[in-house]
């Protein structure tokens, strides 16, 4: 279990060197995106034959940010200063498994190197991590004030009116954002391991037959 410091955009070989259990401190630009954002990206950019003209500008911006980049499953609490600048007040991860139907496509399409969230993801995402060179970074769920401390600047926000504050794309600059690798490019997932071992214990605890 090693410790690394990585900066976005992350080179593929740096991500392929990571293993489950490693601690990583992330810096650079990352983009938040959760339920509405994933549905939107897949419907407008990936499964649509042609990107709608109205969405073209955001598409270009996301391609630039997400190539070698990191998406963060997060719906922050934000505050707007008097000069109009936004600040993150609380910004822990949200449960990632809801994006399982979309994430593999997003990784492949944009060339993501990392997904930050909590709770882990499923086999489709794990396969995409192996194939395209990406990892799942687990942030500490609920540690929202602590993580907000690592957010140094809100650079831009997209789709705030349409999706609402928690669901918008927030482009943020982070420094030393602490995460643990729980799914790597070698096909390993801590979530899969814990699921399996806890199922064995459950079976033992409920094995005596009643009814």
């Amino acid at each position: 279990m090693a410790t690394y410091e990585l900066e976005t955009p992350i080179p593929e070989e740096a991500v392929r060197a990571l293993h489950v259990g490693d601690t990583v401190y992330l810096s650079g630009l990352i983009v938040t995106g959760r339920d509405a954002a994933h549905k939107y990206m897949v419907e407008n950019f990936i499964r649509a034959g042609v990107v709608p003209a109205s969405e073209q500008a955001l598409y270009e911006e996301l391609k630039r940010l997400l190539n070698g980049g990191v998406i963060y499953h997060c719906g922050p609490v934000v505050r707007q200063r008097e000069d109009g600048q936004w600040e993150f007040v609380a910004a822990g991860p949200t449960t990632s498994i809801r994006e399982e139907p979309y994430e593999a496509d997003v990784i492949a399409h944009f060339g993501l190197r990392g997904v930050i969230g909590k709770g882990g993801m499923g086999p489709q995402t794990l396969r995409a991590c192996q194939e395209y060179g990406a990892v799942y970074f687990h942030a500490v769920g609920g540690a929202a004030s602590l993580i907000a401390d690592a957010v140094k600047e809100v650079v831009a926000v997209y789709k705030k009116e349409e999706f609402g504050i928690p669901e918008a794309f927030w482009v943020i600059r982070v420094e030393g954002f602490p995460v643990v690798v729980t799914m790597d490019t070698h096909g390993r997932s801590i979530h899969e391991q814990v699921e399996r071992s806890s199922r064995d214990v459950l079976n033992r605890l409920v094995s005596s037959s009643t009814i």
Partner: peptide, 12 residues
């Protein structure tokens, strides 16, 4: 930190 700064413990 949340107690000290009166910021939400969790963003949700």
């Amino acid at each position: 930190l949340a107690r000290e700064r009166s910021t939400p413990i969790c963003q949700d």
